[in-house]
Design a protein around this nucleic acid. Structure first.
Lengths: 82, 82
DNA sequence: CCTGTTTATACGTAAAATCGTATAAATTAG
DNA sequence: CTAATTTATACGATTTTACGTATAAACAGG
């Protein structure tokens, strides 16, 4: 638990790709479940766009995941954040 | 812990308003911190729009909150309804 | 009440997401 | 190595967000 914190598009993309791989789904499968295009799933995974909240929620739902609001905790050291 | 699950714009709006009240901030204060308009905070709280992910993240950050991805409990794939 | 404060709504404009469709590029399987 | 599959990219069209600005409406004290 202590789900992955999402502070930018890249964080989201990584989480989506990881979850999709774990479920052995193709982008097109996720896309269909979420009623979006395969190209959009690709863009999301690559952090190439800041999607709308409803879109994010639908894609995550397609991967059996939820978005949750949590109080901010001290950030772990993360060399790639900016 | 186990933050509030967000499955639609209304969920987000309620969480934002609650957090803002708890911190005794005005919409305009949150807006300034997040670099958005007061009107947008209002729309967000009222669930009147599906904001972009980066916008949501900025507003939540202004309230010391984070977005987190968590596994869906119980339910298998269950498309978000319209 | 009256008034200052806060929140909701309006409107035109600019920017960005999403679409449909198609194809290039990359990866995997045989 | 080749073919099939999967992922990334392209482009114009459409939809929606977000902006600046202003004002109306709701709210809270005094």
């Amino acid at each position: 638990m202590m789900g992955k914190i999402v502070r930018n598009n890249k964080d989201l993309g990584e989480a989506i790709r990881l979850a999709r791989k774990n479920k052995a789904l193709r982008q097109v499968d996720v896309a269909q479940r979420a009623s979006v295009r395969q190209a959009l799933v690709s863009d999301l995974e690559n952090g190439a766009t800041s999607a709308r909240l409803d879109t994010v929620i639908r894609v995550l739902a397609a991967l059996d995941m939820d978005l949750s609001i949590v109080p901010r905790r001290k950030a772990e050291f993360n060399p790639t954040e900016y």
